[in-house]
């Protein structure tokens, strides 16, 4: 059999098998420490430092929203173009950010694996959390701006948050699978930017399902991210526009991606050569 490790996880002083509560708390502590370190390595302590984490998505989202606002394209349903583009772009920024950074995640953090109780999953979770928190921060600021400037506050903030959380879990699941695959081949690193770029039109970031003819709607609803963008828009625009989504379908995707991803990661860890 391939290596039974009676104590694969062994922080100082610990020798007995532990309960799931202890294990969970320790994992949270490790993820917390990793997130802090990731902040340090990505943004350093100079200039604006950590602020960039939030400024990057804010600037991109704002610029794209503003361009479309200036172009004054009318949107079906009479939606405010600035709001529509920002609300679409920011979750997409998270999806793309988490996935694009996945192929180098393990390679860039190999030195962490010298500490036996840090797992690949810990590394990926901390990276995703950082990206997710930054994007969520940027979104909150934009929503506050829209509220103050246009007097339009989210119809149901809970739905928006739920949409963002689902988008986060989905992105993380894809990232885990890609990171595991990147242990075996460089292909992911080569194509991931291309694929996230090419799939942009079908993710649902910049169209609404009700704009499409019926057949196209049915096709679009196969794409899991379409449901999440619809949920986020439902949370923001409320009854102003019709939205379609199936949360169960999305949860199914998330569960499958994450479970497969974790299994792949476990396999990859054994084959990883540092």
């Amino acid at each position: 059999m391939s290596g039974t490790f009676r104590h694969p996880v062994l922080p100082h002083g610990l020798r007995k098998p532990e309960g799931i509560g202890t294990a969970f708390r320790r994992q949270m502590r490790v993820v917390g420490a990793l997130t802090l370190r990731e902040l340090g390595t990505r943004f350093g302590r100079d200039n604006l430092g950590y602020l960039w984490l939030f400024l990057e998505p804010a600037m991109l989202g704002g610029a794209i929203g503003l361009l479309h606002h200036i172009a004054q394209q009318g949107l079906p349903g009479g939606l405010n173009p600035l709001e529509f583009w920002v609300i679409g772009y920011i979750p997409f920024y998270m999806l793309r950010g988490i996935i694009n950074r996945a192929p180098v995640a393990i390679q860039a953090n190999q030195s962490l694996l010298y500490h036996r109780h840090i797992t690949l999953l810990d590394i990926l979770i901390s990276r995703s959390l950082l990206e997710g928190a930054a994007v969520l921060g940027a979104l909150v600021v934009f929503l506050a701006l829209f509220g103050l400037v246009f007097g339009h506050w989210p119809a149901d903030p809970f739905k928006m948050l739920a949409g963002m959380v689902l988008m986060f879990l989905f992105s993380h699941g894809v990232a885990v699978l890609i990171a595991a695959g990147a242990v075996y081949t460089e292909i992911f690193e080569r194509v991931v930017h291309l694929v996230t770029y090419l799939t942009l039109p079908i993710t649902g970031a910049f169209f609404m399902v009700f704009w499409l003819p019926y057949e196209a709607q049915q096709a679009a609803l196969w794409v899991p991210t379409v449901h999440m963008f619809e949920l986020i828009r439902d949370g923001h625009f409320g009854k102003a526009v019709p939205t379609q989504y199936d949360i169960g379908y999305v949860v199914g995707w998330i569960a499958a991606l994450n479970l497969l991803g974790m299994a792949a990661l476990r396999h990859a860890r054994r084959d990883l050569v540092l």
Binding site: M1, S2, G3, F5, R116, R269, V273, L274
Partner: peptide, 8 residues
Amino acid sequence: AGVEYPNS
């Protein structure tokens, strides 16, 4: 050290 894993 547990940095890498044995094949068996």
